[in-house]
Each structure stands twice: as structure tokens, then as C-alpha cells.
């Protein structure tokens, strides 16, 4: 009767194949890596196989792939302008990767890779390093203009420049924490509310109330699907916005 709840357990990494050790740290092919490979496989299937036919009137899969592509192409174009097109592959890859991982995590018993901070932080780091490296390579010291807001009186710059620098450094943090926190919190909430159903059912007469958390769980599931798609979209949009800074620093 004493069923214990452990909503964190679903996020534990399980090594599938142990590769070796570095110091005390185990190196292993975890289920997280497996899901990432699966996501890449699904994306490849969706984008390569679905568009292989190249029919003028697209079928279902091709239409889906084209819609996703145009959606991101539009976002990138509007955020960065015409010369931002070279970043479209990066943004599209990130969007698809995050989207598929989020959606894979929504399958019951599946593992949500994006609920690990290190994964999302790695993705955010890719974005920020691209911004810095490309910005410096293209504009040299001009890239530092990104820290100088326009139309600010000279004395105020003394305060605004440090703020802008900290703001810039906070970008990878906000980018990664947002995605990770949303997915983590969503999955924990789902688990807890779903568990309420079980707890009420085994509590005798209280079982009458069990449809309440059940309804909430269903609603939360729908919300989580929304969040999964939304977070991928937000991630892609912000990537495009940050890349725009690399293209046109200093306004």
C-alpha cells in the first residue's frame, strides 16, 4: 500500500554500453545518447526521405517537411535579414533537434533528453560561440559595438556597457535554462499529478476524487505538447535574434 513516488527517477541516465573510465568518471553510451541518435535519424528520415520524391504537389510527409523548413526560413529571414540565410542550416538543425527531442520525451516511458541542463547548455554554447566567432571574424573589433547601445548619453555608457556585457553573458544561460526548466518542470508535474490518481484509488473512499487529477493530467499532457513545440520555436527564434547581432553588431 505504501507506494512511494519518485518523480526524478525518470531523468536518471542509464548507461547502455560502458566504454571505459576517465578517473572515476564513467564513460558510457547512455539512453540519452541513444535518444539523440534516434532524433537525428527521425530528422534525417523526415527531411531527406520525405523530400526525395520532390513532387510538385507534395505528399503528406513532404508537405510537413516543407512547412517546417519554410517556417524556420521565415523566422530567420525576419530576424536577420537577407544575409542571415547562411545561418539557416544551423537554426533549422537546432530547431528540429530540440523539437524532435521534446516530442520524443512526450512518449510515455521515453526519456526527455532536453530535461538535462548540460544538453541544452551545450546547444546554447554552440549558438553563442557561433555569434562570437563569426562576429569577430567578420567585424573584428567592430563586434564590440554590440555592447554599446545606441542613442545613450555618454555618461550613461559607463553603466550601460557593463550591463550590456552581463546581458550578453546571460544569453546562453537564459537560452539553456528556459528549455531545460520547462521540460523538467513539465515532466515532473505530469508524473506527480498522474501519481495522485493512483494514490487516491488505493485510499479507499477517496477514490471518488481520482477523476480530478486524471483530468488535470490529461490537460497537462496537452499543455506539455504545446510547450514542447513552443520551446523549440523560442529556441530557434532567439538563436536567429542573437545571430543577427553577429551580422549587424552595434546599433
Amino acid at each position: 500500500m505504501a507506494v512511494s513516488i519518485d518523480p526524478i527517477h525518470q531523468f536518471e541516465l542509464q548507461p547502455l554500453v560502458t566504454l571505459g573510465h576517465i578517473g572515476k568518471q564513467q564513460l558510457a553510451f547512455t539512453q540519452s545518447a541513444l535518444y539523440m541518435f534516434a532524433a537525428v535519424g527521425i530528422i534525417a528520415l523526415l527531411t531527406i526521405v520525405a523530400t526525395a520524391g520532390r513532387s510538385v504537389v507534395p505528399g503528406r510527409l513532404q508537405s510537413l517537411a516543407e512547412t517546417l523548413y519554410e517556417f524556420i526560413a521565415d523566422t530567420v529571414h525576419q530576424a536577420t535579414g537577407a544575409d542571415g540565410k547562411r545561418f539557416l542550416p544551423l537554426v533549422f538543425s537546432l530547431f528540429m533537434f530540440v523539437l524532435i527531442l521534446n516530442l520524443l520525451g512526450m512518449i510515455p516511458y521515453a526519456f526527455a533528453v532536453t530535461s538535462h541542463l548540460i544538453v541544452t547548455f551545450g546547444l546554447a554554447l554552440v549558438v553563442i560561440l557561433t555569434v562570437v566567432i563569426y562576429g569577430v571574424a567578420k567585424h573584428g573589433t567592430h563586434f564590440l559595438g554590440v555592447f554599446v547601445p545606441s542613442g545613450v548619453p555618454k555618461p550613461l555608457l559607463l553603466i550601460m556597457v557593463p550591463i550590456e556585457i552581463v546581458s550578453f553573458l546571460s544569453r546562453p544561460i537564459s537560452l539553456s535554462v528556459r528549455l531545460f526548466a520547462n521540460i523538467l518542470a513539465g515532466h515532473i508535474a505530469l508524473k506527480i499529478f498522474a501519481f495522485f490518481v493512483v494514490q487516491l484509488l488505493v485510499a479507499g473512499a477517496w477514490g471518488v476524487l481520482s477523476p480530478l487529477p486524471l483530468a488535470l493530467t490529461i490537460a497537462l499532457t496537452a499543455l506539455e505538447f504545446l510547450v514542447a513545440a513552443l520551446q523549440a520555436y523560442v529556441f530557434a527564434t532567439l538563436t536567429a535574434v542573437y545571430l543577427a547581432d553577429a551580422l549587424h553588431p552595434g546599433h
Partner: peptide, 27 residues
């Protein structure tokens, strides 16, 4: 563009933007 969910995304952005600023300062 993403339907009526944009304000929701906005709201999620606001909280993390603030927290990220504080965390970055702390680091």
C-alpha cells in the same frame, strides 16, 4: 505566427531572462 501561444512563450521568456541576468552576475 505560432498561433495564440506566443504570449505564453513571451511569459516564459520573461522569467528566465531575469533569472539568467542574476545568475550571470553571480557567476
Amino acid at each position: 505566427a505560432s498561433g495564440g501561444s506566443a504570449p505564453l512563450g513571451q511569459a516564459m521568456r520573461l522569467s528566465t531572462e531575469f533569472i539568467a541576468g542574476v545568475i550571470a552576475g553571480g557567476i
